[in-house]
Design a protein around this nucleic acid. Structure first.
Lengths: 316, 316
DNA sequence: CTGAAAGCGCTAACAG
DNA sequence: CTGTTAGCGCTTTCAG
């Protein structure tokens, strides 16, 4: 696992210096000598490092992604680092610029950059996008259309005839995806659908959404949050105001984060195998780093499912 | 903010080539040329990168730490990356080895390594330890003695006469600190005190602690978790078994993570200004990276306080 | 003030 | 098979 400390030249199977080599290795280890990875990288053009750059390291939606990518990286002998863009296209640019030439591959999750910027980075180092379809770039996305479909059908089945989408960041690919899918499926079922926001994709943002909704609300509504965090914030705001979830309003989230089963009522939410997503993305980026040539442009799609818990019920 | 793209030589205030330099800059920008940071680092010995290496990126206890460190890093023109050791001393060694020579400083949080290993890394790059007092190394720690004191006094004031500590990782510095402080203060107040575990410092670990406690429990107990995650798991296990928190058992956590106010009942927990901790640690490591010489060996201590919520009450 | 050359620490391709 | 050299892409020093 641990790469040889001293230049591989010393470990070449030699006859005469076999023991000499061993001694050098021993002394080097004793002295705590480490090869300078930067110098090594300068000549090999390989850093054996991978980066996951994501919008928000505190968003539990990314946890399993990181875990999966980390496992794949470790197995392949790579070290994984994370860099955060803080939901800002500008910081994303800076971070990508700073990390691109220092790693062998980048898994880009929750990007807020235009496609062109991503392609630019991809010229320096292989990039695999997560939950975003960038033309000509390998990517792995979760089946949000299906997630939206089962969500709407679940709500429709409960008797709801109107769904409200709590929008997240406008530059977010999943946001657009979720909204468009929701709208289409809702229409297919003859449901009314509207969108409010955008809000920050955080608990705080959800609280704000809830507070705004409280003014001029109608009974028997169903809200679908951009993600679990927002759904949770929404529930908190509504609950604090004395309403009941799901009696007064049903709430659905996206991501199935660990927080979803922490709150009361437990959150109904759309789940995806993010660990697999991370694993696939990392594996692909490693393959590219090793010289594989990107095949088709079709994104890898992983399935989603609705986890029905307590936050949804028939309208009052 | 963004460092010049082309070698600084081109931006030297020259007379004749002032416009030439400008043109080169322009063309370089157009072509998307970026200086290779590795090559630059090789000659300057500066990478303008900082690393926060921590035990578990999914532990909310580290969120504010990361935020504070990130803010300090950005302000100083550094890019921050995170690396995770997954609660493993071995992975910690690998991660430190891989990152040490690639960054200008390391903030080490939740280390599971022996002091000697940390000193070894510190020979390569400045290290600031968080929540761990490493002899001769700058560090910033939260005042856990005080946290333990107010916890015990709170419990004592409620009428509890026995406190049980749900232990976390044995190699964890805060674990030892919390336990010793708890024990001492409990004794001062004539309370009985015992320790169970160790458990994994996760919700899962807390669930296990709760399940074990359920066998052979005594009424009117008070449990103090190694961290919020464990306390939450404990509550879940106990609640699932039909008991009530805090009626049947009071529970206190450490860290005051965002999850603490998500669960029902809301968790009483020890809070610390982790954002400040991150900020201080990063600021110090940057100073060292810039050539400052470490002053005294005394750790910086930040205060703690008890956030009383719903998970504690008088014994039944 | 400008342009050339040395060197950062390594690896890889080269002669011996 | 071993030892030497060139060179990765930058910065910085040193002549011109």
């Amino acid at each position: 696992m641990a790469p040889s400390t001293v230049s591989r030249a010393f470990s070449r199977p030699g006859r005469v210096n076999a023991q000499t080599a061993a001694r050098i290795q021993a002394v080097a280890a004793e002295l705590g000598y480490r090869a300078n990875p930067q110098a090594r990288a300068l000549s090999t053009t390989r850093t054996m490092m991978l980066a996951v750059v994501l919008a928000d390291v505190t968003n539990p939606a990314f946890f399993d992604l990181v875990r999966g990518a980390g496992a794949a990286a470790t197995e392949a002998g790579y070290t994984l680092v994370l860099a955060e863009t803080q939901e800002s296209a500008e910081r994303e640019r800076d971070v990508l610029e700073a990390t691109a030439a220092r790693v062998d591959g980048i898994v880009l999750a929750g990007s807020r950059s235009p496609d062109a910027a991503i392609h630019q980075v991809n010229k320096v180092v292989p990039v695999v996008a997560v939950n975003r379809d960038v033309r000509g770039l390998p990517s792995v996305v979760v089946d949000l259309e299906h997630g939206a479909r089962v969500t709407v059908e679940h709500l429709h089945g409960l008797g709801h005839r109107e769904v409200m989408y709590l929008a997240g960041p406008e530059a977010s690919w999943p946001d657009g995806m979720r909204w468009r899918s929701l709208r289409q499926v809702a229409r297919e079922h003859g449901m009314r659908v509207r969108r409010v926001g955008p809000y920050e994709p955080t608990v705080q943002g959800g609280v704000r959404a809830g507070e705004q909704w409280l003014d001029g609300r109608r009974r028997g509504a169903a809200a679908v949050g951009y993600n679990d965090l927002m759904a949770i914030g929404f529930i908190r705001a509504v609950t604090r105001a004395g309403l009941k979830v799901p009696d007064d309003v049903s709430v659905v989230g996206f991501d199935n984060t660990s927080s979803a089963e922490l709150i009361t009522p437990e959150l109904t939410t759309v789940a995806a195998p993010m660990r697999d997503v991370g694993r696939i993305a990392a594996t692909n980026v490693i393959a590219l780093a090793r010289g594989a040539t990107s095949t088709r442009g079709e994104p890898v799609v992983v399935p989603t499912r609705l986890v029905e818990r307590e936050s949804t019920a028939p309208p009052a």
